[in-house]
Amino acid sequence: MDYYNPLDLAKFGDIGKNAPEAANKFFAYYGEVFAEGALTEREKALIALAVAHAVHCPYCIDAYTNTCLEKGSNADEMTEAVHVAAAISGGATLVHGVQMRNILDKKTL
């Protein structure tokens, strides 16, 4: 059995089978979040694409690569979005080095 099967993406809604109320609330919230607001649907899709990479979700990467294309984004914009995710992910790792330094400073002569 594959852990990640692209066809499983279409079954996302099945998550409501044993908890329909929670799932309905989640999907209603999800729809509201991605509707055009202060940000356009295109901008939100680019953010989602970046986050999808940061959380290493292949389903989300598949879904939001296609959504970005359908919302009119191009490969330059999408690649820059992924770099933003990489910069924040890398920065988050590095900034924890401050904790390491704090401990090093305390424990070492």
Binding site: E41, R42, N66, L69, E70, K71, G72
Partner: peptide, 17 residues
């Protein structure tokens, strides 16, 4: 027309872009 196997954006946002 889209540059591949995907649907085009909605006319309004595409026109603005």
């Amino acid at each position: 027309n889209p540059g591949g196997a995907f649907l085009p954006p909605a006319q309004g946002p595409a026109t603005r872009a």
